[in-house]
Write a protein that binds this DNA or RNA. Sequence first.
DNA 1: CTGCATCCTCGTCGATACTG
DNA 2: CAGTATCGACGAGGATGCAG
Lengths: 135, 135
Amino acid sequence: MFPSHSRLPVPADPADHTECIVVREILDRVGDKWSVLVIALLGQRSQRFNELRRQIDGISQRMLTLTLRQLERDGLVLRTVHATVPPRVDYALTPLGESALEPLNGLIGWAAEHGTDIAEARLRYEEAQADAAAG
Amino acid sequence: MFPSHSRLPVPADPADHTECIVVREILDRVGDKWSVLVIALLGQRSQRFNELRRQIDGISQRMLTLTLRQLERDGLVLRTVHATVPPRVDYALTPLGESALEPLNGLIGWAAEHGTDIAEARLRYEEAQADAAAG
DNA sequence: CTGCATCCTCGTCGATACTG
DNA sequence: CAGTATCGACGAGGATGCAG
């Protein structure tokens, strides 16, 4: 969370401390390992648990469950249980979740576009470090 | 990082695994506690170390140093040392750093706009949980 | 198939003390 | 003023086993 005294240059009321906290919480969600990927996948189409699991190579059952719970809790994802046998659970984005796709894709787009710039910057940095150590 | 087999629905070449990794790394940066705030503050004007420190209530000296180092390493922030006494170090956004402001503000704007929606969703969720437990 | 509980590891962050 | 070094606490996340 942003500490309550600090400010974020958001368009809206910069004096509102609550807003900073809210923003920090959401940014935290963006930062955690799987949330954005899950949102992006559900943005394509609604899917079942193991359908997601198979697409997200490397995710543990536990983390997929936790991630989906959190997204459900935040109102970004809708969980639908079908009382069939075997049980079937569908996950879909809510309208709120869909509204997140746009800013998220903005960020993802930026990342994809400037990824090489960053990689190059890192190389230059390492180089400079090596020079400093050698010199 | 995104596992190398998973895909992100970015406009550009979805088959490129490297892109996923790069995107995940950048998303991680967004998620860490202080980076976005530092970028936002430097977006207003370039600032000195303790100038930033004072504005970011709650940050430790260590974390501000680490955060700035990482942003410098990634080419988002430029560090300028003035050989005066006492020493003076200025931090400023690079053009790359400034280019990040737009997507970042997009996300921050979304968060600010939908923060109450999320808060409400959480209340409803807790409520439903309580009902389930009681019923 | 979907999901919870447990254990354990590892990285991140804060506190503190010290340096140029 | 602007760092670096070290230590400890904490929590995210993976592995595994069990349940509805």
